[in-house]
Design a protein around this nucleic acid. Sequence first.
DNA 1: TTGGCATATATCAGTTTCTTATATATATGA
DNA 2: TCATATATATAAGAAACTGATATATGCCAA
Lengths: 119, 119
Amino acid sequence: MKNKISAELLKGSLKPIVMKLLKENTRMYGYEITQRVEKLSQGKISLTYGALYPILHKLEADGIVITEQENVNNRTRVYYQLTPKGTKKSIEKINELEEFVKTLAILLKPNPSVGLCTT
Amino acid sequence: MKNKISAELLKGSLKPIVMKLLKENTRMYGYEITQRVEKLSQGKISLTYGALYPILHKLEADGIVITEQENVNNRTRVYYQLTPKGTKKSIEKINELEEFVKTLAILLKPNPSVGLCTT
DNA sequence: TTGGCATATATCAGTTTCTTATATATATGA
DNA sequence: TCATATATATAAGAAACTGATATATGCCAA
């Protein structure tokens, strides 16, 4: 019951997922984010470091997040936090992901009818 | 209300969507598939030909589908149909996509609790 | 005391999957 | 005659990952 979701499927969803977590938690560090995704998805999504850090660095370069370095137990820890601009972008990305989920749900219905009105 | 879902998000989902349609309709041709996806998704998903035909050719090469060419109004039409092996694969892919949708839905909940039991 | 696991960040070669443009060809309606 | 719909196809390039590798500390167990 812990079948991992394949990499192809995940491609493109990881960034919005990271932004969602940052929006809910105000301040998180990289390692924490991977652990959270692992737990929330019940082991079905593995956010690898090779995927995560480039995402975080890109978000910083784009002014979506700002960072704060702290030293905890002699280990460097980099906290990420959304900027006001980042919060706005986050909301957009999350809305888009929600639309995506809804649309997939329609397509996955047993016998999707063409032109069915859902309102 | 017709905001297209971005390409990044779609990446990886298109193949399972095609397999789902083939499973529900026994026999479809390429052009028909793009039109169906467009309608079912209410314009939110555009399955381009540059994406579709490589997918269909790959499915054929992998023994997931067999093809039949027909001539309709002097235009060649290539019908695609799942093989028994393809039907099995289809069911797997669709299940995986369903898992994916469910998992994303959990992650998108307003304040996802860690370790929440969903059974 | 030594080896392994958890913690913590980081980079990079290679793969896959798409987009966008291009090509070809017929039928139909304005 | 010209645009649009129908129908299939390929290819260069971009983007987002995986999986490997690197570095370093703290802690626990054999």
